[in-house]
Design a protein around this nucleic acid. Structure first.
Lengths: 206, 206, 206, 206
DNA sequence: CATGAATGAGCGTTCATTCAT
DNA sequence: TATGAATGAACGCTCATTCAT
C-alpha cells in the first residue's frame, strides 16, 4: 500500500511535469510553428531546464506529437459526448459544429497547431496514426448521422462519405476563419449560417 | 537603341533565370516544406550555383514568397477568365470550382505549398499581402456572383460575404482531398456533388 | 564495542557496495571504453541508483581509476606470488608470463581496460601513480630476476632495465593478441614460444 | 586546357585545406584523444571556421580516421622502401625497426593516435580496414623476411607468423617507450639492443 | 544511506548568407 | 554576371553531477 501510494505520487508528479511541458510547448509551437520553435524556448516557457524535457519526451518531434495528440483526443471526446447529448440529425450536426468552434476558441494555441498539421499531412513524415484516427472518427461520426437521416427519410439519398468529409472541411474552414479573426460575427450566427447551409445542402426539409 | 536592346536581353535572361529558380524551388518546397528545404537543393534543382540564387532573390524566404506569388497570380487569372467566359450564377460557380481543381491537379507541387501557406497564415511572419489579396479577390469574385444572383432573385437573400468564404473553403477542401489522393472519384463527379451541394445550400432553385 | 561492531558492519556494506559498483563498471568500461560508458549504464549494471555511485566514488573518472587499480593490484600480487613459488630464472620468467596470460584470460573485461589505459598514458590526465607503480613493480620483478641471472652467470651481461621493459612489453603484446582473439594456439604453446624466444634473446643457454 | 588548369587549381586548394585540417587534427587528437577533442579546437588549430571542416570531412570520426590513414600509409611506405633498400635478413630487420622509430619520433602526434587506436581495436567501432591492412602488411613484410631466412638456412625453423607478430609488437613497444620518454638512451643503442635480442631470439648466428 | 529527478554546460552538425575571384 | 568556398550562429540532444526527499 505504501508502495502504491508512493508510485502514485511519482506518477502524479510525472504527469504534472508532462502537462507543464505540453502546455508550454503548445504555446511555443502555436507561436512559431514546429520548425522555428526551439527546445530552449519550450524549456524556458515551462520553467524547466532543457535537459528535463528529455526526461519526459524523447525528442522535439515527440513533444510536438504529444501536444497534438493531447488536444485531438480531448476534442474528439467532447464532440462525441455533445453529439450524444442531443437527438435529431440537425441537432447533432449543430452540436458537432458548436463544440468544435467552442473548443477551437478556447484552445487557440492548440488549434493553430492542429490546422497546420492537418495540411502538412502532405509531407511524408507527418500526420501520425493518432491524428489521422481522430480525423477519421470525427468524419465517421458525421457519416453515421447522415446515414441514419437518409434511412429515416429525413434527408434525401446522397454520397454520405463525400458529404461527411465536405462537412468536416466546412467546419474546419469556419474554425480557421474564426480563429484567424477573419469573422467578426457572433459565434452563434456563424453556427446558424453554416448549419443552415449544410442542412439545405443535404436536402433536409425545414 | 543598342543599349535598349542589351537591356532587354538582360531582362530576358534575368526573367529566365528567375523562372528557372522558381520552378526548381516549387518542386523542392513542395517535397520538403519551407523549413526542410535548403538553398543547396534549390540550387542543385535549378542547375545554378547557390550564390547565384542570391543575385535574383534576397533570401530563402523571398524565393518562397515569390514561388507562392507566381502560382497564385496565375490561378487567380485563370479563375477570373473562366468565370467571365460563362453566364449564369450556377455556371460561374461551376467554372470557379472546375478551374481551381484543374489548376491544382496540373500544379500539384504548387498547390501543396499553397495549402500549407494558407494555414501557416496563422504564424506572424507568414501570409504576404499578395497572397492575402489573391484570397480576397477570389472570394470577392464569388461574392459578386452571389450578390448578382440575389439581386436577380435567382437565389434567396443571404449573408453573401460569409457564404462566399465558406464556398471558397469548400473548394479548397475538395482540392486538398483530391490532391492528397483521398478522393477516388472522377473529377467531374466531385465537381457535380460540390456544385449541387452549394447550390442547394444557397437556396438556388433547380 | 557496539560502535565498533556497527562501524565494521558499515564498512563491510560499504566495501560490498564498492565491489558491486566496480564489477559493474569493469563490464561497462570494457564494452564501451571510458568515454562512451555512462554513469547510467554503470548504475543499471550494478543495480543501484545513479546518485548512489557518487556516495562511493567522487566522479566517473574515479570509478574508472579504481576499477583499474583493483585489477592491477590483484595482478601484481598473483604474479609476485607465482614467481616466488618457483626457482630458477627460466622458471620465474615462465611463471610471470603464464600468470599474466591466465589472469588476462580470466579477466578479459579488466584487461581490455588495462591495455587501453596503458596506451592512453600518453594523454596527460591519464595513468595514475598507482597504475604506473604496478607497471614499474612488474618490471622491477623481471629486472631483479635478470640481474640475479647475470650475477650467477646464467645469462650473459646485458642492459637489464631495457630488457626488462622489453620483456614486459612482449608479454603484454602476447596478452593482447590472445585476448583480442588473434592467436588460435594453445595457451601453453604460446607461452613456450615466447619463453624460448626471450630466453634465447637474453642469451640463456639451454 | 583552361578547364584542366582550373580544376587542378581547385584540387590543389582542396588538398591543401585537407592537409591543413589533418595537421591540426593530428595535434588535437594527439593531445586530447578522440573523445575529448572537439571540432571547435580542430577548427581553431587549423585557422578555419568550424563549418569549413564539414566541407572536407563528413564527421569528426571521419577527420580522425583520415588522420590515422594518412600517417599509416606513409609509415608503411617508408618501412617498405627502406627494407627494400638493404639486403640480408638482419639488415632488413634493422631497417624496419629504425624506420619505424624514426618515423615515430618525427611524428609524435601521429604516433600517439596510432598507438591509442591500436589498442582500441578491442572496441567494436574501432580499427578501420585501412588501419588493419597496414598492420597486416607490416607484419607480412617481416614474415616474408623470416621465411626467406629460414629457407636460406640463415635462421632456424620457427613459427614465422607468430614470431612476425611478436617482433611487430616489440617494435611497437620500443616505439611507445621512446615516444613516452621512458627511454633515455640513444636511439641507435635501443635499436641495437632490440635487434640483437630479436636476432638471438630467432636463433640467428652471429 | 539511497534515490532519481533536475540541471545546464557542452558538443557535433547544419545551412542561410557572404564575398573574393 | 556567376561561382562555390568559407563562415559562424544556432539548435537538438547528452550526460556527469547535484540535492531534496
Amino acid at each position: 500500500m505504501r508502495a502504491t501510494t508512493r508510485r502514485t505520487k511519482q506518477e502524479i508528479v510525472s504527469e504534472f511535469r508532462c502537462t507543464e511541458i505540453l502546455d508550454a510547448a503548445r504555446k511555443v509551437f502555436a507561436k512559431k510553428g514546429f520548425a522555428d520553435a526551439t527546445m530552449d524556448e519550450i524549456a524556458a516557457a515551462s520553467g524547466l531546464a532543457k535537459g528535463t524535457l528529455y526526461l519526459y519526451f524523447k525528442s522535439k518531434r515527440d513533444v510536438y506529437l504529444r501536444t497534438l495528440q493531447h488536444g485531438t483526443a480531448e476534442l474528439l471526446e467532447r464532440v462525441t459526448a455533445n453529439m450524444r447529448g442531443v437527438t435529431g440529425v440537425r441537432a447533432k450536426l449543430r452540436a458537432n459544429i458548436a463544440t468544435r468552434l467552442e473548443y477551437a476558441e478556447d484552445n487557440r494555441d492548440f488549434i493553430k497547431i492542429y490546422l497546420t498539421e492537418f495540411i502538412n499531412t502532405t509531407h511524408p513524415a507527418s500526420m501520425t496514426k493518432d491524428f489521422r484516427d481522430v480525423q477519421l472518427k470525427l468524419a465517421r461520426g458525421l457519416e453515421q448521422v447522415l446515414r441514419d437521416a437518409v434511412e429515416h427519410g429525413e434527408i434525401q439519398q446522397l454520397d454520405v462519405e463525400t458529404i461527411a468529409f465536405t462537412i468536416q472541411d466546412m467546419i474546419r474552414s469556419l474554425t480557421t476563419r474564426r480563429v484567424l479573426g477573419a469573422s467578426k460575427q457572433d459565434r452563434a450566427d456563424d453556427i446558424d449560417i453554416l448549419c443552415n447551409f449544410i442542412w439545405k445542402g443535404i436536402g433536409g426539409g425545414d
